[in-house]
Write a protein that binds this DNA or RNA. Structure first.
Lengths: 332, 332
DNA sequence: CTGAAAGCGCTTACAG
DNA sequence: CTGAAAGCGCTTACAG
């Protein structure tokens, strides 16, 4: 009994003078109303003393539950998703679930993850910022998936950020500052969340939008593209709203390289709130990453327990920093 | 047979006209020399056609292998570790292993991960940038752990970055540019990697080092602390070497706030190479994150298969950008 | 080169 | 409120 690796529920049952069933019930937190409080207490105490840990693989094999979920994200190197993971783990870990981070574009990406869901290696998936194709794939596992920041699909649960309000707050700020010509800097992906931002901008700033630029998400490439566009004057825009902090950082860097001063000649607003926005002093629409990870994971776990579809909208916040100011009196 | 969830190795055996053992051998890639090529081919074809996927939990239960490793890192929000994860997954995935990212300081952190190793939930751990306490804990599972960027512990395998060379390249650059007074900006942690950087700086720049500043890794807090120190003049330093890109970004931001121009009045060099250094145009000592994740993971998997301890040193590179220049002719 | 049988450690009906 | 027994889908000696 000295070796905790060898302890099984049988050992605990023997030491506590109960059956293996009783031990199982206690450890699955399914004992209330079935096993007396005194017995439960005794089982827990014996297990604690002996250092018993149930075997996850035996449990998974018998129950058909892997006790593992996948968090599918576009990019593991974006610190924003680190915060989402933190929130997801905070929800999963106390319930005995592990979260595996999966990059949707990677070799072992979404398709593998969905196959893993079928094979019961993963119990379910949280899909962050899917594109249409990914969303279609997720529909194949309606009870095993929650879409996070991917619009309002009908047949699948979702959590999303209140992007429309975020955009409105940003545009309101630019209006108040006196901007009358605004550019939109867009990343070159087809993720649904970016279409939503487009729509938000169209709704809030139809009268101000004078230029839309689509650039690569690769930092060096995107910045080079932006240098040309910024040098070209962005059709007279005095401010730009960027679909992410990375894009805003590229724009910032490109502006500097071309001697365009931020915010005097060009105000910039980003999206997400990461180290990048803090370091560069970027005004940004801050999305609650950790809350979102937590909410989506709780929703997924509830759904695995049999609850139906549900939906949740999370509030956002405009974080005002030094990259926004009134436009210069004389346009450049 | 239409439901792939229900397919077992028995079904495949029946369809292929072989025993379950043969199927198992083929799927574990342990068939060569035991099963004829023709039989192997037949088994694979049947499995493919029927869409068979072996059950990981059954395999784990019987074999005692979880086919999952943990990557323990100090901070999930640092994009640098996203790149490490990517490398680790690239090594693990083709061999059928999953990588779970674990934040050492989190509630379900290193202690839980080590317990999971004992309980065979995790087969092993890659520990990135441990501190002394974490390293001590890792010694409890010598064959199940590889230390990455944590010095050269005797009883445990390691991979590390050639920090000494990195520091020397950085100091050489500053010397060539004409700097004679250098500050060192240090984070407030006791991670072994920072002690190594200290030593490297002492070795390469003993004659230049005029100030050492220790600041918080929390962005806003660290920057506030740095504002005071930079305003205080850093004892006349014209350049600072910072223990990470985040710290360099804080210094950059603090300098701007105090009207100290980078690089004219203060040159800055960081460590790691992330979006942050690219966005801010920071000269940095670039560490090969993905390679390191891959190397440490391969080492861990080999070790789980019975090879002994091994060690590996990875080269680094100085990436020169706009945050370094010759010191101003007249000191501030 | 291949197969029959036992068993990994749980959970799940079922019986009481 | 509790227990005895079967079985989840593999892998592992062992026998041939």
């Amino acid at each position: 009994m000295a070796d905790p690796r060898k302890l099984t529920s049988k050992d605990i049952a023997r030491h506590a003078g109960v059956s293996q069933t009783t031990v199982s019930l206690v450890f699955r937190d399914a004992a209330d109303g079935k096993i007396s409080a005194a017995t439960q207490e005794r089982v827990r105490k014996v297990a604690e003393e002996l250092g018993y840990r149930p075997s996850p693989s035996a449990r998974s094999l018998r129950s058909g539950r892997a006790h593992m979920i996948g968090l599918v994200i576009p990019n593991v190197s974006d610190p924003f998703f680190g915060d989402v993971l933190r929130g997801s783990q905070a929800a999963a870990s106390p319930r005995g679930y592990t979260v595996a981070m999966i990059e949707s574009g990677a070799k072992a990406g979404l398709s593998d993850a969905i196959a893993a869901t079928r094979a019961a290696t993963l119990d379910g998936l949280v899909l962050h910022s899917p594109n249409r194709r990914e969303l279609r794939q997720a529909r194949e596992i309606p009870n095993g998936a929650v879409v996070l920041d991917g619009g309002t699909p009908r047949t699948i649960s979702w959590v999303r950020y209140d992007l429309a309000t975020g955009v409105r707050l940003a545009i309101d700020l630019l209006r108040e500052l006196g901007h009358r010509r605004i550019a939109h800097i867009h990343g070159d992906t087809t993720r649904i969340t970016f279409a939503e931002r487009d729509k938000g901008i169209a709704a809030a700033a139809a009268d101000l939008l004078v230029s839309t630029v689509e650039v690569s998400f690769d930092f060096d490439k995107g910045r080079d593209e932006l240098e040309d566009r910024i040098a070209g004057g962005l059709n007279g825009a005095t401010a730009a709203i960027c679909d992410s902090d990375s894009l805003a950082a590229m724009a910032f860097s490109a502006a500097q390289a071309r001697g365009v001063s931020v915010p005097d000649q060009l105000s910039l607003i980003g999206f997400n709130e990461t180290h990048l926005s803090r370091a560069l002093g970027l005004t940004t629409i801050a999305l609650p990453a950790a809350d979102a990870g937590r909410a989506a994971t709780e929703m997924l776990l509830a759904q695995l327990d049999g609850t139906g579809l549900s939906h949740r909208l999370l509030g956002v916040e405009l974080r005002r920093r030094g990259s926004t100011a009134a436009p210069a009196a004389t346009p450049r």
